[in-house]
Structures are given as C-alpha cells and as structure tokens.
C-alpha cells in the first residue's frame, strides 16, 4: 500500500467535495443557520445559553450528517457509473488502498467543515457571552465520530449498491442508529419472544450513534465522563473498522463491466 498514492486520493477527495455545488450550498446554509441562532435567542428569556448551544450543535449535526450521507454514498458508485475508476485502478494501486483514499478524503472534508463550523460557533458563543464548556467540547468530538461512522456505512453501501439505494439505506441507518437503544428498550418489555429477539438482534447489529451523541448533555451543561466518551468513541471506531473491512472484502471481488 503506497502512502503517497493514498495521500493523493485523500487530497483529490477533498478537492472534489470542495468543488461540489451541493457542499458549497450546504456550507452556506450552515453559516446562515448558525448565524440565525442569534435571532432565536431574541425570543428566549432565561435559557439563552441552552438555546444557543442546542441550536448550534443541532444545526452542525444535521448539516454534517447530511453531507456525510450525500458525499459517502456517491463515492464509489459514482466512480463506477462514470467509469473514472478505470483510470485510477489502472495504476499500481490496490482496491483497498483506493477505498481507503476515498474514505480519507471524505473524512478530511468533514473534519475541515466541522472545524469551520466550530469556529463560527465559538465566535457566536463569544458574542453572546456564553461559556464554552467541557460537555460542548465532548459533543463536538462525538459528532465527528458519528459522521465518520455514517461515512463508513455510506462507503459500504456505495461499494455494493447504486447511489440512490445507498443514500436511502444510509439515511435509514442514521435514523435507526439514533433510535436503536429506544427500540431495544421498547421491545424488551414485549411478550412476543420473536419481537424481543429481533429487537435485540437489531440493537447489536446496527450502530448505536447515541453512544457518541453528547449534544443533549451539552445543552444541559451536564459534564460528560471521559470514560463515556472513550468507550463511545472506541465502539464507533471499532464498528467503522469492521464496516470498512466488509466494504473492502466486497469491493476486492467486484467486476467493473
């Protein structure tokens, strides 16, 4: 595996996203939304800090999740559809390296976008004299790992399905990933053994995105224990690595007609 080749693909992926109109429009939208939270604070009386934090983190999570789904689900399928993959794989580059480079490009894009949004968010906090607290920092770290996991789901789907189907599936995983804990709690009380088993199976198979979602704690300014963050991040990274290995295994065996 050549680090130079993977690096070139990472840079290229970042450049592709930067020149994509959808990314530009969404970033503009995020800037507008974050800025408008100042207006939202006008209608609040005593919970200004909570609204600013809740609204700011919520907008970032929404935009970054959408971008992660949009960018990742087209990564491989679009290359296959447009046949750009033929020129890239015609080089002395393994398919897993290709996938790794494309994943890296997407993660770099999301990291840069999140950093830009965080800068805007911090400026807003400073303007409104709202303190930046430990739970907010943990929420921002958790958010990056959440969208990273979504990206890996998107790449797995993209390596096997068309872009539209991949996008629908990844969006489904996004919602289920946030609801799997609730669903599990709900079916655990059921009398139906099959339903209980299905709920338990879904809980263990699907990613639990709530493990790295500390936004509610940040809004209520509840400290997030470091152990909770580390276990959440560890589980998310492990899940992402497992998905990447599956994606790579499938991708290595695909025919590009």
């Amino acid at each position: 595996m050549s680090a130079r080749a993977v690096g070139a693909l990472v840079t290229n992926g970042f450049r592709e996203a930067r020149r994509n109109r959808v990314t530009v429009v969404l970033v503009a939208f995020a800037v507008a939304m974050l800025s408008s939270s100042i207006l939202v604070t006008q209608v609040t009386v005593r919970t200004l800090d909570r609204v600013v934090v809740d609204f700011g983190l919520g907008v970032m999570a929404l935009i970054l999740s959408f971008l992660a789904i949009f960018l990742s689900t087209g990564l491989v399928s679009r290359e296959i559809e447009r046949k750009t993959i033929f020129l890239t794989l015609g080089k002395p580059l393994g398919r897993t390296s290709f996938l790794l480079g494309r994943l890296g490009g997407n993660l770099l894009t999301l990291l840069v976008l999140e950093a830009a949004m965080v800068a805007l968010y911090l400026a807003q906090l400073a303007l409104l004299r709202t303190p930046f607290t430990q739970p907010q920092a943990m929420a921002l770290i958790g958010l990056f790992f959440e969208v990273s996991l979504l990206t890996t789901v998107g790449i797995l789907c993209s390596a096997t399905l068309s872009q539209t189907v991949a996008a629908v599936t990844t969006t489904g995983v996004f919602f289920l990933g946030h609801l799997s804990g609730d669903l599990y709690r709900l079916v655990r009380t059921s009398d139906d053994a099959v339903l209980r088993f299905a709920g338990k199976a879904a809980y263990y198979v699907l990613p639990n995105l709530e493990r790295v979602n500390f936004r509610l704690m940040a809004a209520h300014n509840q400290p997030v224990p470091l152990s909770t963050v580390l276990s959440g991040v560890g589980a998310t990274v492990a899940y992402s690595v497992a998905l990447f290995i599956i994606a790579s295994w499938i991708f290595e065996r695909r025919d590009f007609k």
Partner: peptide
C-alpha cells in the same frame, strides 16, 4: 492504460489530474 471512452475526473484541471496520476504511479 487508456480505457475505452476514458473518463478522467472532470472537476480537476488537466494539470491537477496529471499530478494526481503521477502520485498514483509513485
């Protein structure tokens, strides 16, 4: 290798595409 109807990344300039390909070649 030049495939049939080659499709280089169209969001890149000719030079960017060449330099990226050069890195892939090593």
């Amino acid at each position: 290798f030049v495939p049939e109807n080659p499709a280089p990344y169209e969001y890149l300039t000719g030079r960017e595409f060449m330099e990226m390909s050069a890195a892939l070649v090593g």
